[in-house]
Structures are given as C-alpha cells and as structure tokens.
Design a protein around this nucleic acid. Sequence first.
DNA 1: TTCTTACATTGACATTTATCAATTTTATTT
DNA 2: AAATAAAATTGATAAATGTCAATGTAAGAA
Lengths: 230, 230
Amino acid sequence: MNNNFPYSKYNFNNQDLLSGLTTAECERLTANKEILNFKAGTQIFKEGTEPKGIYRVLSGKVKKYTATNFGTDHIFYICGENEYLGYHAILSEEEYPDSATALLDCEVAFIPKNDFLNVVSTSHLLSQRLLKNLSHEFGVFLNATKILARYTVRERTAINLLILQRKFSVKESLKEIEMNRDDLASMVGTAKESLVRMLKDFKEEKLISTKGRIIFIEDLEGLVKASNYK
Amino acid sequence: MNNNFPYSKYNFNNQDLLSGLTTAECERLTANKEILNFKAGTQIFKEGTEPKGIYRVLSGKVKKYTATNFGTDHIFYICGENEYLGYHAILSEEEYPDSATALLDCEVAFIPKNDFLNVVSTSHLLSQRLLKNLSHEFGVFLNATKILARYTVRERTAINLLILQRKFSVKESLKEIEMNRDDLASMVGTAKESLVRMLKDFKEEKLISTKGRIIFIEDLEGLVKASNYK
DNA sequence: TTCTTACATTGACATTTATCAATTTTATTT
DNA sequence: AAATAAAATTGATAAATGTCAATGTAAGAA
C-alpha cells in the first residue's frame, strides 16, 4: 500500500482459526460438518436466538449486524472468505448478540456446537488461538467505537469506503464497491439520504465515481485524507 | 430492579477471572505481584505502548479510553473493583489498543506478563474462563457500537447515566454519580456543552437533580424511558 | 420489450449538535 | 477568608445531520 490507512485495525480474523490442528482434531471437528448455501439476502442466524454451531464462510460475503428496538440496524462487520461466524455466542454460553445475513450468495460450512466445544476443550492450540483472535478483535472494536463516537459522517463514510474497498478486492488493484445504500448507511451509522449526499460530495471532489450502485474508488489518498484518520 | 434496562450488557467481567485456580497456579501467578497506588488522574498505561503485565483493580475506579489523532478521547468503559485491565494486549501480542487512567484514587495489583501467560498456557480453567469473558465482552461492545451508531445524544446521555448509576453504586439504593463533565461527554460521545444542556433538560423534567458536579438520579423509570432502550 | 417494483437521488426544511465566547460556580491555594 | 485557578454553565450562532415527500433510475418479471 502506498498510504498509511491502518487496514489491520478492521479485521477480526487475522489468521485461520482452525489451521494447524492435528488430524484427529480436524476429524472430530468436521465429523458432522455440513455445507450450506445461502442466497443473497437470506439470514444465517438471528440475534437473541440459541446458537447451534459455528460457520465458516467458504465463498461470498456476510453482513453482521445488530438491531435497535425501533427498527434500524447497525452493520458492524462484513465477513469474507475463510472467516468464522457465530463462535462468540457458543463460547460465552449466551444467545447470539448479533445477526448474520448473506450479502452475496454464500457457501458456508456449518460445525455443530458440541463438536466445536469438544475440540476447544481439548486443543490447547485452538483455545490459545481463539484467545488471540478475540483479544485482537477487542482492538478492532475499540477502533470502531471511537470512530462512531468521534468522527463526522463525512469522515466515517470515507473510512467505510476504504474498509470496503479492501474487503471486496482480493487483488489490491480492484477498486469497486457494490453495496446497496441502506446497508452502506447502516455501516456508517447515518441516514440513507445523508450517505447519498456524502457520496455526491465525494464524486464532485473526484474521490470516487459511480455507475449505478457500483462505487469506484478514484483517489485513494484523497479518501484517506477525507477520513481524517491516522 | 424494577425496570428492564439490561445492565448485564454493560459489564465486561461477569465473573472473577482468577477464582478457582489451584493453589499452585495462584502462587505462580502472584509470585511477583506488586501492589501499586495511582492517584486520581494518573495514567496506568498508554495506548500504543508495549504491555508489561495485567492489572487488577482492588479499589477505586479506572477509565478506559482511546484517543483520536485530533485530540479528543472516547471513554468506552469504567472499571471498578475486582475487574482486570490490560490482558487483551498481552493475549493478542499487540500494543495496548487503549489507555487506562485512574478516575478515583486506586489500589491495583500488578501481575507481570510472563507470570500471567505462563498460567494461561497451563491452566485449562483459566483459558476457558478468558474465552468466556472475551466473547461475552464482544456482546457488550456490539451493544455499545449500536448505541453510538443509532441513538441520539439525549438517548445516549440517559443510557450512560443509568450505566454509571449501577457502576458507582455498590448498593442499588445509591443514586449519585460524580464525574466531571468532560469525561461524561467523552463517554456519551458528544461535546461538553451538549452534554450539559442535556443534563439541564433532564433536570427540568425532574429525572435528575444536581449539587455541584454530583448528579442524583431522581426518576430511574423516567430515565429508562428517555433512553429509548429496551 | 414493457410493465412493475425496488432502489437511488434530490429538494426543502426541521432538528440536532457543535463551536466559540462569555459568565458563573466550584474547588484550590495562599 | 480572600485570591486564584479550574470547571461548569449559558447564550448566540453556525454547521451538520435527519426527515419527509417527490422524482428519477435501474433491474427483474411478465
């Protein structure tokens, strides 16, 4: 990268949680594994319900979000390939604190709760890795709350475009983001109309361009500057 | 409680992390323990620095916060008695993602990094408990980000008063909050003047009263209603 | 293709929140 | 207690953001 935007502060899973397990552990873990397919827009699990297992995203994208009692969502994370979903609720022995819905068509591996817990309780490597991941996530969340608490809508919009650009592009060169405006506004934490106006400003400043709902990042450095984030 | 405000969503540590360890483990853990005293206003550790160990608050209160590059803080948590500080950075093997400063005079037990890691790596109970705590915290944070993203300053002010009331009162009956206005504004995620005006509104509505900087909760149910949180 | 529907955008305006500059109150020091 | 410093509050105003209604555009269904 030729800019100093700290993308590392935006990734929950900084390594593959389940790599490096022994063959026996892997077998126990995947003994009852199921491959599931979710069409874009389908809910994978719902806030407040009992967790049945964990999920690994094999392909596609998943949005993670919470709902207010007055009907607005807040999308706090987009999960991509090889990231895991739903393990927090299993480990905390609580209900799901959030919901997950496919953003694109997804292929997902489902591992039942008991198989996961069983391996967690016997594999030192796995529990150490989970500890590392969860505590890394803590930093990611601190960053997110700080941004919501202290940055303007303009700054947050820029920050989220930068995050999404990274998240959606396997290759760095790819600078397209496709996401509906309601979801984008829900990530930024603003009204759809305010989000659209911000995009318009960015277009006038030549930081981005659009074609339909697709957003092209035209000036990465300019967006970093607009984010006011160092 | 005679209201349905979910205080449980605001506590990081839902049990004593280190209770139930074997005598041997306890000894290893506390072999190099130091008791430290921090005067109100003194920083305990600083964002971006190398973690040296973990801290347990024995008495007093500690604010945890992150700083923006443009000089405003966001206080995201108040630690009280028997809560632990600084273990995230140790477990994630990263720099401190946040800072901690004594809000009141504090007595704190310091456990060096290696002693902690040593016991974590050998005690199954401790690592399981840490996993449970960290994943519980995830839910606490989701709630916090949702509130920052989706609730108004009025609602957030009410929510934070309710949290502080609980946090500062050992007995439920105690309904006093003493905190300077800058810190309160920093928790709510707003400007000091906006915070003060919100307090004024709440006073006019007889939800609170004040004497100097001390805030008395006069109508808990009314504040819950003002928070718009269910 | 045409119709239909969902989504995106714009305009006008109201409301909320931040900022800056006083002023008042409270706490601390002498 | 008086003097001083720090913090809290208020007022005036600007800026940011949200809301509601209308219009435009794109995508899927018939």
